[in-house]
Design a protein around this nucleic acid. Structure first.
Lengths: 212, 212, 212, 212
DNA sequence: TATGAATGAGGTTTCATTCAT
DNA sequence: GATGAATGAAACCTCATTCAT
């Protein structure tokens, strides 16, 4: 008996669903397919999760828990670090989430695939998973620009920084063409994170000077 | 007889399809719905476009033609302009495409909704619609960093700039939450474009100094 | 090619549905079963009637049209007839509807089987098929009791008369036990109608005397 | 611990089933729903009653016991009462069963909802619950018409009387429309019972005269 | 005595596509 | 050049029932 079989039906279905939803999206991953992959009866989804959407909700929760525990948004850096280090830690965490080929990468894949989906329980995801991160960046931005920065500028700077990271999530299908390779080494990923941190520091300083 | 009715069936179907694919995505926009909206027979799609995917391909072509003629990637700026102006023109064009509520906005909406779609004839879209733009940015980056910049740095800088713009396309569903409003005035859009240009100039200079 | 096959798919499905809904009720008659009986594809119901409920609505309409054209509620008797003849005509029409083994009997069977059903578009059925009949009886009652009869008494008398007829619809499953036989001859049916008319005349006169 | 909880599981399930079968019918009341309402395990039905139909049988028995003990068919009137009083007592008992909003009304509701049902263990119900009542009416009819009345006339008269009462059971869904109100006061119910008794006496006398 | 996870059969609906006209 | 009736595959969901514990 393999370990796969020993898991509870619920767990097997959940894992299969994570994988298939991330791979094909909500609509294209069928209940039958998921149950098949989980070696479970097709009624399991109804029994354990109510319906397909209930399963989907649980998948989001599961993927979110895994990714945040593996890669906390603050990157494990103390708040006393230099601003560039803070930005680097943030970018590094995001990029790890995006490029991970493991379970820890499922959340970013779901986000990438379903940002456009009408089924996305967006409010909840945003509240739990996205806005805390933007607030984190906001703090760093404020450290550079000073507390007197106006709200609009603050927001624009946050978007500039997050956009640079998120780009690597949403350009997935172009990745081979864009980067010449599928997977990234840890060093390459690090190179990107350092670039984003430095580029952003330059950007922020430029903005700060303009403000004066 | 209104102009709507005088159009050929094919044209009416194509327009309805553009609208509905942009609005709902490939899977969720049904052939029946499109034909209905176009006041055409349900067999029209297969008759004129072979099948649903054939129609989809044509929709991409159509939307691309409209958007590029309305907002050329170079933003209509001469190559003699300052680097910041070039970046501004680029960002402005992209943002216009993204925020347009007219037919000219369909392409960005399709891109947003279907970047993740397995049906996307990605190669062609990328070749025609995306890479020419990144090359444009690449030229500007080179003007700032100098011709001797290494390829990897060049690519990272391009991504930093494009990512800042693309962010506004892929954050559509969060837009109300993120920006506090649905639609943007021309002035607000301009503010964003100027921000991105200046932030990017700062970023490029920082990178350039680091390179030395 | 039999005549059955030459009918349109829509007509075949409708007829099969009439029969099966009358026989088993809305829930227990399945779409698959109906389409099978009609020699039609299972998607026909969706195509021609939208969904199962749409088909059900159409079945009611169809059965109602058939039964009212075969057995008009006034029994084809002129309003100058004696009151007992009017009651007899009314009862006779209702009983014919109830005991008919042909298509003309479908409406009563549907009513019998689905009076309790939550799917019944009751308002419409009542408005079209039931209340016109009660009004008819009301007129005859007034002829006997005089125009000065109070509303409550009028209503109670109408119910007494209609109840005697309707009893034969709702006692269907007990029919063999109650009447000792399944089907009725025209003479037996006539005997019942005459009984109800006479019994009711006696009842009305008693009520009238009590009123004085 | 409330009394509700102290009851045996079997009793709780039975009560919940009575309520839900009366409310929704056999098909539409699900086993899961019943067990839920009874705060019992989903396997309880099969465990205690064999299967859903077994539970249904038990529900009929239960509801019948309750209603007959609350409203005996003879209405508690001595056989020495006048014929009209006997009819009044009979009608009153039936109408109370029909209009009761308590547990005592469950039997009539079940009858109303499931007369058409193929699951109904009709023979048993009829034998225990229905025919004793018709025999009772038959006795009264004989008292009026004399012992020499022919069988057919006797049956027709019984149906006329029972039909008037049963009408109020089977017209439930039309009740608001027909009577202008949902619930009935004791006085209104009494008014109906007296009407039926008197109307029937008139009918019987008319029939008797015709027979001569 | 009782549980609850798990199942299998079967229901309705959707939808892209086809084909005779 | 265009139609629309008809289809088949496949999707999701429901629910009574079972079985190991």
């Amino acid at each position: 008996m393999t370990e796969e079989i020993k898991q509870t039906t619920r767990a097997r279905v959940l894992e299969a669903a994570c994988r298939l939803f991330a791979e094909k999206g909500f609509r294209d991953a069928t209940v039958a397919e998921i149950c098949d992959a989980a070696n479970a009866n097709i009624a399991s989804v109804n029994y354990h999760f109510g319906d397909k959407e209930g399963l989907y909700d649980e998948v989001w929760r599961h993927a979110f828990a895994i990714t945040t525990s593996a890669y906390p948004a603050n990157g494990g850096v103390s708040e006393n670090a230099t601003e560039e280090d803070l930005l680097y830690a943030f970018a590094s965490a995001l990029l790890h989430r995006i490029f991970s080929e493991e379970e820890t990468g499922l959340f970013a894949k779901l986000l990438y695939r379903e940002m456009a989906s009408p089924t996305l329980a967006l409010e909840k995801i945003a509240e739990e998973a996205i806005f805390p991160q933007t607030r984190l960046v906001g703090q760093t931005v404020k450290k550079v620009l000073g507390d007197t920065v106006d709200d609009q500028t603050l927001v624009l700077c946050k978007h500039s920084i997050i956009g640079q990271c998120a780009f690597y999530n949403f350009s997935r299908p172009l990745r081979t063409r864009i980067m010449g390779k599928e997977a990234l080494t840890e060093q390459e990923l690090d190179r990107i994170a350092r670039h984003i941190a430095r580029f952003s520091m330059g950007g922020l300083r430029e903005i700060m000077n303009g403000e004066l």
